[in-house]
Write a protein that binds this DNA or RNA. Structure first.
Length: 93
DNA sequence: CGTATGACGTGCA
DNA sequence: GTGCACGCCATAC
């Protein structure tokens, strides 16, 4: 269990329902701004249901991948109130 | 220890 | 808007 992994889990765990963070944001919050690549890896290997990893999307708004399938991720996000436009997450700034 | 791969991002043609 | 090359970090072999 690396510290990065711990931080990533902490951050992702704190994502409010109906909101999403980008891999880059998660990396920033985890104090490893350049490790967004590793963030994806960590989340991919993660099988902990306490981690809402489906709330982590691409910076371009794309939903990205998911260990249970992109469609599943989309469905979960929609169900939680996230607005999806043309298979892309609408990130309001 | 070097290489390859992956839930990614950026830059450029 | 699309496609491709490169860079980044962690993990698997």
């Amino acid at each position: 269990m690396t510290s990065l992994q711990k931080r990533v889990y902490e951050v992702v765990k704190k994502i409010p329902r109906g909101e999403v963070l980008t891999y880059k944001e998660v990396a920033e919050f985890a104090e490893h701004p350049l490790a967004f690549r590793a963030v994806g890896n960590i989340l991919n290997k993660n099988r902990n249901p306490k981690i809402p990893c489906h709330r982590v999307v691409r910076i371009s708004g794309g939903v990205g991948e998911y260990n249970k399938g992109r469609e599943k991720k989309l469905a979960l996000l929609k169900r939680e109130g996230v607005v999806i436009k043309n298979d892309k997450v609408v990130i309001l700034k």
